[in-house]
Design a protein around this nucleic acid. Sequence first.
DNA 1: GACTTTGTAGGACAAGCATCCTATTTTTTT
DNA 2: AAAAAAATAGGATGCTTGTCCTACAAAGTC
Lengths: 202, 202
Amino acid sequence: MALRATRQQIVQAADDLFYRQGFEHTSFADIAKVVNISRGNFYHHFKSKDEILDAVIETRLQRTQQMLLDWEEEGASPKERIESYIRILLTNWAMIKDYGCPVGTLCTELAKLDHSSKEQANKVFSLFRIWLRQQFTLLGYGDEADGLAMHVLSWSQGVATLGNAFNDIEYVRQEVAKMCDWLDAMCRHNKCGKKFKQKKRQ
Amino acid sequence: MALRATRQQIVQAADDLFYRQGFEHTSFADIAKVVNISRGNFYHHFKSKDEILDAVIETRLQRTQQMLLDWEEEGASPKERIESYIRILLTNWAMIKDYGCPVGTLCTELAKLDHSSKEQANKVFSLFRIWLRQQFTLLGYGDEADGLAMHVLSWSQGVATLGNAFNDIEYVRQEVAKMCDWLDAMCRHNKCGKKFKQKKRQ
DNA sequence: GACTTTGTAGGACAAGCATCCTATTTTTTT
DNA sequence: AAAAAAATAGGATGCTTGTCCTACAAAGTC
């Protein structure tokens, strides 16, 4: 088999289980059962549970980065790109309704555990933050761009948490609509949407 | 000693530890150490860990209800009362920055554990929801009141999560200001703030 | 003052956990 | 084909967990 095939399977299974059950509530046996390998084999690939967590966070960082690049290509204007971000609440609703936001829930869990990988997990938030900030910068909100990025970030985060708690997609739809309306107003005030039809990449 | 003194101590310690460490990461030994009683004594007061959780949630429900009643007395207008809610982000910042929102973090943890007390924990959210809804109703937003309540709820929830992740009080201050501005605008549009100076209670 | 209830202590237990270790198989290198 | 390296399996270990059990102390009741 390929050199990293098993390792990759482990990370994939751990990624999924950490999201659905939480980091602490997921045991080695749980992951081993999914991947169908022995516990011993585990320690050939990862020396500790924390090491798996680091690997999981690493793949999440890469996956997120890729997603942001994709949105950058798909969305012609900054506004459309931000809308891609907002819509993720509905795109991933099937998971969010049961397990919440994968980024936020991991960060809050690690914060409570005072885990050493806490900062690393927060970097996923940072990726979104920086990306959103750039979109708002392109929309002409120089100084406010970071504040607006954080605003969108926390707004969506709250909607994920409450949507999960109340299991109410209708409410999520409403909030998504509100966010899009808000974004519309933001763009109108700055008379954007025409100037940013095309943005060069690569 | 009083009949329920020890029991109350247990609940109090568990309440604190569940918040700071999370429910699952808190063991019987942890609680027993704080209260300074033996493990055995524990089972005289609570048959299981889940039973303690239920008791903790119960006290949180009561404490929340009392806080809402207090705000109702302190705040002359619905607007001022909602502001009391918003300001809690700053009032409790010392805890939130390290452990997040006590309501949200418990609900998300129990959701991942698929715990039977999940719904009970969600009721704390419901208390805030109903209370906020009433304030917005008083402000004249009949049909929209519930949607606005949920909006405030998720907004603050997101700010707590992101504030915790980034450990950034300046950002929290900005968002609190934004929420107050937003509330101002809401009241101005409905020409409120004068009609609701005094509201009878009890 | 005897008796029942309530509170407290701490040992015992089985299960689950992360981790380590050794032996065996598979793959790669030479 | 021989030797070295990597991958795998599964038993052993020691710790922690929630839970149970029995023994004793305190308090209240008749």
